[in-house]
Design a protein around this nucleic acid. Structure first.
Lengths: 338, 338
DNA sequence: CTGTTAGCGCTTTCAA
DNA sequence: TTGAAAGCGCTAACAG
């Protein structure tokens, strides 16, 4: 009965002809750009409905010079860490008319930079860069073409906003909590040495130790790659060194899950024998056994706020961003020493 | 020093002028459409490099009538279930020149349909529909505008491919495993009654019971909404009914995590007191304590295969899809009864 | 091998 | 209030 779409798509010109008006009139009605008389309006609206006309966004975009699309660069599309932030972005975009194209940098500076260029070539109207390894200067450079909001960096220009959480403070909170519980020998499962977050959290770990007049023992620090598997392996390595410790601070929740499994495999109870604390507060961290004590990062809010900021930047507003603070979530993997 | 981009973007025409050739020549070099003499090629390439020219994709798209973009409809952008599939899609798209815009239907037929229309208006070249609630007929209808590959449905037309996993068989595998271990009273934490996957898995559960001459007891079936929280609640409700059972089959892994926590809270050991099996095999399921026995769904492969199929459809090929089969992953949450 | 010439479908002056 | 006309930046016949 309908379905002219199956052939040549209906264009604005078709509608104009059908309604007996000029293309400009149809356009005006579509965009509410100018007043149009009642009868013409009616005729056009009828034609649009009958012909199932949908304006071709590609053409609109070319003409208007914007694509109503923003680019998102994540590092790992399947990571729960980014997933929460993406949800925030998704909500932030709701009702804005913008769609998002998500690309993945895979924690590789070169790939990341290529992806950004790709987004730029697609004429996205703005970019959200979640973490990543490219230099701040490169971000600033790209931002001269399109506004960029970045997480995990402190940059600022007319067209770029970066914000980062206070990793050192978060780590301080975590380790302080352990110390308050009476732990003295606290292991730290760190991230890669070249990871900025990891370095800052290590600094927080050290600061907490210092505060409590505890000595920093590099033997208690092992490295992981932020994934479960490597958390498990790191923990195993630590055990091989025969170090004594009563608590573990893991660089992030996923690593903590790996640590947890390593402990389980060895028959070590959590928190009875060893206390464990993570960092991030992933949605699943409330459902581990036992539920994980951790430092809550406002993942969702980060996405939401980044989006608001970017939309602001795009419309040329002056933007201020403030993020909710990091927060200690005491659950059930930590307890008093002894 | 450079940065003419900051002003008006460089166009193909600028390059042509700079290189002293016609725009078509530049276009030909860009697209490799025809042979171009060495000297002109060199001149153009130099100009492109010097001027930092990037072709405007919007214009290319309008001209070519395709957007080099595919649309992905997920139901929940932050769900680990979709995340794995998205990773498969991402890999499937690698090197194809296509980018993807991801939208979320939130398990709501209306919203889903709106999102599809939005993608269509954006002239995506194809759509991947992951699960969802819109009618098959609606999918087929949309597929007349653009090719669609859908998961969780059995549809097929010239421009639409749907494939679904054998949920009943998967559930059969799960429950048979439990029965083989000697369990006789097996609880089933189902999904919403209107969820097709859930109904099919219930059928598999019943079939396994029947095979073993075990009676189906509706009292042993409780409902959840596929999330951790509701798995926990469902389990709590089941305990209130004082039913006896030695094993639980959860509709999916996330629900199983909730069940696991409920059990932990009650001091019930897994698998010593009660065996637990899930469905999906999320990446995190290998890292729960103990690691979850479950039915492995080829999540990543689903994404990869769907993408290959869609790309095939777009290029007008005849496509056949075969998915890896469901598989029982015996880990550590199930053991012999008693 | 290369340039000229029309557009892709829409928006937006500019005049009327 | 409305229409004619001129593009947005690129590609693809069609000649030459």
């Amino acid at each position: 009965m309908e379905e002219n779409q199956i052939n040549r798509p209906v264009t604005l010109l078709d509608v104009a002809r059908e309604a007996g008006v000029s293309p400009s009139t149809v356009s005006r009605i579509l965009n509410g750009t100018a007043k149009v008389s009642q009868d013409k309006r009616k005729a056009v609206e009828t034609a649009i409905a009958e012909m199932h006309f949908e304006p071709n966004q590609l053409a609109q975009n070319l003409k208007k010079g914007c694509s109503m699309t923003i680019g998102i660069v994540v590092q790992d599309i399947s990571s729960p860490f980014f997933a929460e932030t993406l949800r925030g972005i998704d909500d932030g975009l709701k009702g804005s008319g913008y769609a998002s194209v998500i690309v993945s940098g895979h924690w590789n500076a070169q790939e990341e930079s290529d992806r950004v260029k790709l987004l730029l070539a697609r004429k996205v109207d703005g970019i959200i860069l979640l973490s990543g390894r490219i230099e701040d200067s490169a971000v600033l450079h790209f931002a001269r073409q399109r506004p960029i909001v970045a997480t995990g960096r402190s940059i600022r220009s007319d067209t770029a906003i970066g914000f980062k959480l206070d990793n050192e403070y978060g780590a301080l909170l975590a380790v302080r909590h352990l110390i308050d519980l009476g732990h003295r020998r606290i292991a730290f499962v760190a991230g890669p040495a070249d990871n900025a977050d990891s370095c800052e959290r290590l600094a927080g770990y050290k600061r907490a130790l210092l505060e409590a007049n505890l000595e920093f023992d590099p033997q208690l620090v092992v490295e992981s790659d932020l994934q479960e598997a490597s958390g498990l392996l790191a923990m195993n390595r630590l055990f091989e060194t025969k170090q004594q410790f009563s608590a573990v601070f893991a660089i992030n929740d996923q690593t903590a899950f790996g640590v947890r499994l390593s402990l389980y495999r060895k028959g070590i109870r959590v928190p009875d024998d060893i206390s464990l604390i993570g960092f991030d507060d992933l949605p699943s961290s409330s459902y581990t056994t036992p539920p994980l004590t951790t430092i809550r990062q406002p993942l969702y809010d980060t996405g939401l706020i980044a989006t608001t900021a970017l939309l602001g930047l795009i419309s040329g507003k002056k933007i201020d961003v403030t993020l909710p603070a990091l927060e200690l979530m005491v659950r059930e993997t930590t307890r008093l020493f002894r």
